[in-house]
Design a protein around this nucleic acid. Structure first.
Lengths: 183, 183
DNA sequence: CAGTGAAGCGGAGGAAGCCTCCGCTTGATG
DNA sequence: CATCAAGCGGAGGCTTCCTCCGCTTCACTG
């Protein structure tokens, strides 16, 4: 790739990050191009679809997911506290950008989504936590990772749409934790 | 209201119902106007915002909600079966039109949404079921109606976005039921 | 029944966003 | 330096939104 093309690409990702943060993942792409100082054609050559741009942006988050799992699992207390801490991290990771939770979770089941690799990282992270719970014998039988991811995605989407704070989200996560753990 | 205006209004609601059913709640309003045989100005005079039109359409569903509660509560089996039957009704009522679940649930907490009266009906229906569960002593302490509505709204939204069938939704509802009931 | 005024109608059209196409520019290479 | 493909910009066609305003039609009155 030519050096100027490389520069433009990086600049586009940087600007898109800011624009999406301000106005959500549905923000006008023409504005991303304008603020990056390139023509729309250039944007669409680098990122043929909106999803391609989303994917490029999320690449930076993905690296952090593992760290968030560890952080949650280091929480003081028993399995329930650890699980809830992780659920909170999960929701918070999904709601970084307006509109992200719904988009990411929607692509969970579908093989050909451009976001598939991203959402798979989230699903894998959740699975690792559930597995650890199972090893401690606190997980109910028949709890499926995909279902839990979708439940959390649903909570995150509601939090996104209604601008909920952590204290409003917590009781929903409590219900899910109760539903997932033996007691 | 003049007779012709009344006719147009009814026709618009009828056509909007069909268009939204085919193409989701985000379908172009100009097409609603075109198919109703009126100018866009007429549509926007009767329904100044998209939400106003949504509200008019949902008015017809609202009458049915009570019947669905009764239907679910008549299910064979114990409290758990009744609750799950109601959860399934709830999700199915929310996913009649593409995009409805997210919109309705988003307006749950906010007083000034044009959909407030509609979503309140759903919330009231759910509350009546939860109250009955509480009277049978099977409900956990501290379970809040709004939280359960949001959880179900989240499930419905995920079902909508991922085109899930009842059999895919059921396990998520199981988790919520476990989380809400004593056991 | 005709006249009148207001209620209501239609659709042109500006604005915003999407995305493509193509002529021009520029970086890489010999 | 010369060459030329890779890459760029932005004009512009398309769709959808929503408003504005001149014309039509209804309802009411004498």
């Amino acid at each position: 790739m030519r050096a100027d093309a490389q520069r433009n690409r990086e600049r586009l990702i940087e600007v898109a990050h800011a624009v999406f943060k301000e106005r959500g993942l549905d923000a006008p792409l023409d504005e991303v191009a304008r603020r990056a100082g390139v023509g729309p054609g250039t944007l669409y050559r680098h990122f043929p679809t909106r999803e391609a741009l989303h994917e490029a942006i999320m690449a930076t988050w993905i690296e952090e997911v593992a760290a968030h799992v560890e952080k949650a699992m280091a929480t003081e207390g028993g399995c329930r506290e650890k699980l809830l801490a992780w659920f909170e991290e999960y929701v918070s990771l999904l709601t970084r950008h307006q509109g992200a939770a719904a988009k990411i979770t929607a692509s969970l089941g579908c093989q050909d989504s451009p976001l598939r690799t991203k959402c798979q990282t989230y699903a894998d992270a959740n699975e690792s936590v559930l597995t650890e719970m199972a090893e401690h014998g606190v997980l109910r039988e028949g709890v499926d990772n995909l279902d839990v991811c979708r439940l959390l995605g649903g909570v995150a989407t509601m939090a996104d749409h209604s601008s909920l704070e952590a204290k409003d989200v917590r009781p929903m996560l409590d219900v899910i934790a109760n539903g997932v753990l033996k007691n």
